[in-house]
Simulated assay, not measured.
Amino acid sequence: MNQTRRKSLQKLLDQLQPLEPVIEEMRYDIEALKDEEQEYLDAMPDGISESARGEAANAAIEALEEAMELLQQVQSDVVEATGKVEEAMA
């Protein structure tokens, strides 16, 4: 690989590497919000937890869990892409 392409790959690598900790922080923040919503739901009396408010809280919890799973996949993909760029530079 020539120097020009290697520099271009390094630039890409420099952009990729900071993404993983940002994604990790986002997952942590979403998890904290999900936990708060779960605590809110758990504190509801039975009658309210089975009402529209309870259903909305459940839906929010499920959506946040899905968001966390998707971000986990994105994080894994970023790590894999970083590895592949590093491999190409070797």
Rank of each mutant, 00 (worst) to 15 (best):
L19V: 01
A52D: 06
S49F: 07
A43W: 09
S76H: 11
L70Y: 08
V79Y: 09
E25G: 14
Y28G: 03
M68H: 05
Y28C: 08
D42P: 06
E66K: 15
A52V: 15
A57M: 03
S76Y: 15
T82K: 01
D29I: 04
T4M: 12
V79Q: 09
D29C: 04
E31T: 13
N2C: 12
T4K: 08
A59C: 12
P21Q: 02
S76D: 10
L13K: 01
E69D: 13
M44S: 06
K11P: 05
D29W: 06
V78L: 06
L19T: 03
Q17A: 14
V22L: 10
V22M: 12
E69W: 13
P18K: 00
L41I: 04
R6F: 14
G47R: 11
A43N: 14
Q38A: 04
I23F: 00
D46G: 08
K11M: 14
R6D: 11
L64N: 10
A81N: 12
M1K: 12
I23G: 00
A81E: 05
K84N: 06
L64C: 03
S51T: 09
K7C: 06
A88W: 12
K34F: 13
G83H: 02
A43P: 09
V74I: 15
V22R: 01
E62H: 15
Y28R: 15
L41G: 00
A59H: 12
V85Q: 02
L41N: 02
Q10G: 13
T82L: 00
V79M: 10
S49V: 07
R53L: 08
Q75V: 05
N2D: 14
L64Q: 05
A63R: 05
E86S: 13
M1F: 10
A43M: 07
T4V: 08
E86V: 04
L16G: 01
Y40E: 07
A67P: 04
P21W: 01
I23P: 00
Y28V: 12
K11S: 13
Q17V: 15
E31L: 07
E20G: 01
A57Q: 01
